[in-house]
Design a binder for these strands. Structure first.
Lengths: 257, 257
DNA sequence: CTGAATCGGGTACGTTGTACCCAGTAATAG
DNA sequence: CTATTACTGGGTACAACGTACCCGATTCAG
């Protein structure tokens, strides 16, 4: 397991756990379990928030105060645990009625901002390589919520999916570029300013070679001072500008939004 | 080193190697080096193309037919090697004159398609977590190329950067979702159809609960049959649609493109 | 030739995920 | 009650990883 991944383990095991029956278990022989899958997932999320995506299974065990191998009684392996974590952080207890008064554009902006906030709270999510989408209850609810933003418009289902995917990718892409944090195991990284100070002598020499005339023209420092969130908003706004005429064209008669 | 990263090692060492002086070395005591940094980087890329992003340093050594530790004479560590690989695969020997007859939109589409092709050829790139952008000669040339697409327009420098970043993130985001491949170390993954067949019973039961009414409405299979490339193109086209009025507004007088 | 610097290779260490074994516990059957 | 049985938590151990370190061989300057 070199790189943390979702959808890389045994999908059946992951799905079984994601959609597991939560009704109280009937009585069985043997000691009562000390842990639950939920507690493990939440502990793992807490550890990942602290240590980054390369959290270790031993850290999760330690967080729960149990032996290293104990959590394997509840979860088949790290990959499946990550599947559970990813679904869990996507949980949104927000009220769907929040969308009521909003038009499609405000709704999609809300969707993007919500996703952004999740990444901001759990930057390790950005380092996870999703092989195949594993749908659990929470991510399914998020997807359902996203589709509901298109109510009152007759955009074809296929295009609705394309729009949702586009927005997600746009948010994820921007977040990945800006939001990755130091993980505990690594030496702390230089901050933005320090980083450019390190590169500067090399870039300066490169510019002097004359090979990069267009970049060279960007002398003004303000060309680079966009924040992460501004970059995301810019991409989103242009995308929605481009979507607008199509949405207007399919607005259902009698719908004011 | 749990997850492969760029910009996580010692940046000075990476930069030193990226911008290293290629003039023939003066004579030194000791045996002639059997390898070069370039050969190592190319071997590492070949291995990663084959084995995925979780390639091992030992595989790179084996590819070159040398001992496991030998490459450490040339490269300080894996993280710095990845910095070199990332810069290298971005190399583009395409002629800048290709842009001559094209308008801004065609140029940006070309930029996106070019990036897409790189990901298609080297999917391990998508699994690399870039902490900070490490600029080398090749990525700098790509950036220079990107800026050149805005010639003939007076878009503010800051917005040019936002547009380039947006397009890159959009392409990367979509590619990440679709283009990740099986790596050698993992069991081969189910293909698309097989994957949904695995999830189907769980999703079916979920729909029966009535919690996901909007998703449920998407009964038609054609809602999901967009290919990876189509998804990228859709996001790109909407973004460019939204950018168009701004580009027209700043078109320089006397420029036909 | 001598001394010094550099090369390649082998050994070994710490960390990772996790397979496996064993002792202890609690519900059930008689 | 006791015996059986299923299940628990914990400890040990292994393979793979990146890489620190050492040593003998090699080739330069003087």
């Amino acid at each position: 397991m070199a790189t943390p991944q979702t959808g890389a383990g045994d999908p059946t095991r992951s799905l079984e756990l994601l959609w597991r029956d939560l009704s109280p278990a009937q009585s069985k022989p043997g000691p009562k379990p000390r842990l639950t899958v939920d507690r493990i997932v939440e502990a793992a999320i807490a550890v990942a928030d602290r240590e980054g995506s390369c959290f270790g299974m031993r850290s999760v065990s330690a967080e729960l105060g149990v032996g290293a191998m104990t959590i394997y009684r509840y979860v088949p392996g790290k990959r499946e645990l990550i599947d559970l974590m990813v679904d869990r952080v996507g949980r949104n207890d927000g009220d769907e009625s929040l969308l009521e008064g909003l038009d499609w554009r405000a709704r999609l902006e809300l969707l993007a901002e919500g996703t952004w906030e999740v990444y901001d709270a759990h930057p390790w999510l950005l380092e996870i390589n999703q092989r195949r989408p594993v749908f659990g209850p929470d991510s399914m609810a998020g997807y359902d919520f996203a589709i509901s933003a298109f109510e009152g418009h007759d955009l074809p289902d296929r295009e609705i999916n394309l729009v949702i995917t586009s927005i997600m990718n746009l948010v994820t892409g921007t977040a990945r570029q800006y939001l990755m944090r130091d993980s505990a195991e690594e030496a702390p990284l230089a901050d933005e300013r320090e980083w450019w100070a390190i590169q500067e002598p090399y870039l300066k020499r490169a510019f002097e070679s004359g090979r990069f005339r267009h970049v060279q023209r960007f002398s003004d420092e303000s060309a680079w001072d966009a924040t992460a969130h501004q970059a995301m908003r810019y991409a989103l706004e242009r995308f929605l500008d481009g979507l607008a005429p199509r949405m207007e064209a399919v607005r259902r008669k009698g719908s004011e939004a």
